Computed example of a mutant assay.
Amino acid sequence: MKSTQIIRVTPPHLPANTDPSDVVLSQVFNANLASQEASGTADAAVSVERTLHGLRPGPQSEPHMFALIAREPGETEDYLDVPAQSDDRNFDYLGYLTVTLPLRENTDTAEVAVTLDAGLAPLPGEELSPEAVKALRRLYQLAADVAREHGRGTLQAGLMTSPSIGVDGDPRVRLMRELGFELAYQGGEYLVELGELPAAPLPEGIAATAFEGVSPPEPLVDGFLELLRIASTDVPHGSLRAEPANWSRERLAEVAAHSARLGSQLVNVVLFDAYGPVGFSYASRHPGSNPAVAEQDLTVIHPRARRQGLGTAIKAILWRELRARHPEVKRVCTFVSDDNAAMRAINAKLGATLTAIETVWQKRV
């Protein structure tokens, strides 16, 4: 009878996000397979390059990756540590765990992502096998152990579910509740075809500027940082434990350097009036990802400038700018909380289609 063992994946050691080890390739394949089965599209697939970059400790977070493997009777070799790069050893994988520790805010939190290997993962609507339940229990217990080891008292674990079965039809949800997790956030992944975009007139006194990278033009930086601070608490995030983000010029420079190392392409739009920035939205493209798809993660409007149609306008302006700079982009994948009624209405107006349900489950440990 086979036994199981946890292996720890050590951070990338090469300068470039290349030469992934077999364990990283397997995790990426299975995570993308699960995402595609939930959403019906591969547009939100995460590349190997992006995954390797995400395993590098940075100024914002500290990642830890593990895999659960099956062992043959009599095997004695110790596989405790496996490097993220340049290791071709193939194991009998059962599942994968990534625990990300925020370093600036929410330092009591551990963010958890668990993926079953394809051999154990159920299709949408199917029940979990006893072997899958056992693997998930082991991985979530490991997540709690890692959190406690690093002084974290809250687990936040994400799931992606097909709209065809809904949250209550997902067998993993029943297990999460058995393990003591509570639903803290629900939102959607949406896909927008960049066809004919609506007109985006701006009110008198408000203008738009577009830029690439992370930092806006110098005269807008301080107001831009204020928008980021507003977004950290103002954008609906359910009942997730969250703290305001303390954005500074130094922090912005750190994020810019970390992003440049990955080689992502960011297209941003800032709206501003005579007093400074009043709106911000951005889209990103990452190495190794589908070149026809961009991601949009954040749109924020300053409270003093709301109820003027700026949310719709800034998205339309951004998508036009994205298409002009990167004509190969045909679709945008965007994410929004179910509690954000205003942004959901904007997305609907722009033709967004729900592709998957995203939930985050929270537990004290």
Rank of each mutant, 00 (worst) to 15 (best):
P11S: 03
L14N: 10
A31P: 01
N32F: 03
S35K: 07
G40D: 03
T41Q: 08
A44M: 11
R50T: 14
L52E: 00
P57E: 06
L68G: 03
T76H: 10
T76R: 13
Y79L: 12
V82R: 11
R89F: 05
Y93Q: 08
T107H: 09
D108S: 13
D117R: 05
A118K: 14
P130M: 06
A143S: 11
A147E: 04
E149H: 13
H150T: 10
R152E: 04
R152A: 08
T154L: 14
T161C: 09
R174Y: 07
E182W: 05
G188Q: 13
L197R: 04
I206V: 15
A207E: 00
P216W: 01
G223W: 01
I230T: 11
R241I: 14
A245Y: 13
N246H: 09
W247R: 04
W247N: 07
R249E: 03
A260N: 14
L266Y: 15
L266I: 11
V267E: 12
Y275G: 00
Y275K: 00
P277A: 07
V278P: 00
G279I: 01
G279Y: 01
S281Y: 02
S281M: 03
A283T: 13
S289I: 02
A294P: 01
T312Y: 04
I314Y: 00
R325D: 08
P327G: 11
E328P: 09
C333D: 08
S337M: 03
S337T: 01
D339F: 05
N347Q: 05
L350S: 07
W361L: 02
Q362G: 07
